[in-house]
Computed example of a mutant assay.
Amino acid sequence: MSHHARWAQVAALFAAVVAVGSNAFVLTPILREVSASLGTVPQHVAWAISAFGAATAVSSLVLSAQLDRWGPAKVLSLSAVLLGVAELSSSLSAHWLHLCLAQAMAGVAVGVLLPGTYATAAAVSPRGKEAKVIGLVLTGWALSLVFGVPFAAYVTEHVGWRSVYVITGTLSLAVACALWLSLRGISLSRPVERVALQGALRIPGVAFMLLLVFGYMTAFYGTFAYFGEGLRVALHLSAQGAGSFVFAYGLGFGIAGLMLSHFAPRATKSYMVTALVLISLCYVAWLPASTVRSWAFINSAVWGFLNQLALNALIVTLNRYAAEARGVVMGIYSAVTYVAVFAGPLCMGPLYAAYGLFGVTAMAGAIVLASAAALLAVRVHH
Rank of each mutant, 00 (worst) to 15 (best):
A264L: 07
P115H: 12
A119M: 11
P126W: 12
S300W: 13
H4F: 12
V341T: 04
A80L: 11
G365P: 08
L351D: 09
G107L: 12
L311H: 14
A19I: 01
L306C: 05
S50E: 03
L237D: 02
S144N: 05
L181N: 12
M330C: 01
A65D: 07
A285N: 05
N299P: 01
F253Y: 15
A219R: 12
G185F: 14
T56D: 04
A153H: 11
V273H: 06
S300D: 04
A51P: 01
L314G: 01
G199P: 01
L83T: 00
A373G: 03
A104M: 09
V336P: 05
T170E: 00
Y283V: 00
I279E: 14
R194L: 03
T156Q: 09
A46R: 12
L38I: 02
I332P: 06
V292C: 00
L67H: 08
M272A: 07
A364H: 10
P115S: 06
A109F: 08
P288E: 08
L97N: 04
V112I: 12
I30Q: 08
S37P: 03
T170C: 13
A94E: 05
V75K: 09
P191V: 03
G116E: 07
V302A: 10
M330F: 15
G356L: 14
L281Q: 01
L311F: 15
F214W: 11
N299E: 08
A109T: 01
S182M: 06
Y221H: 14
L181H: 14
L357W: 05
G344C: 09
T139Q: 15
V329P: 07
Q240G: 07
G356F: 14
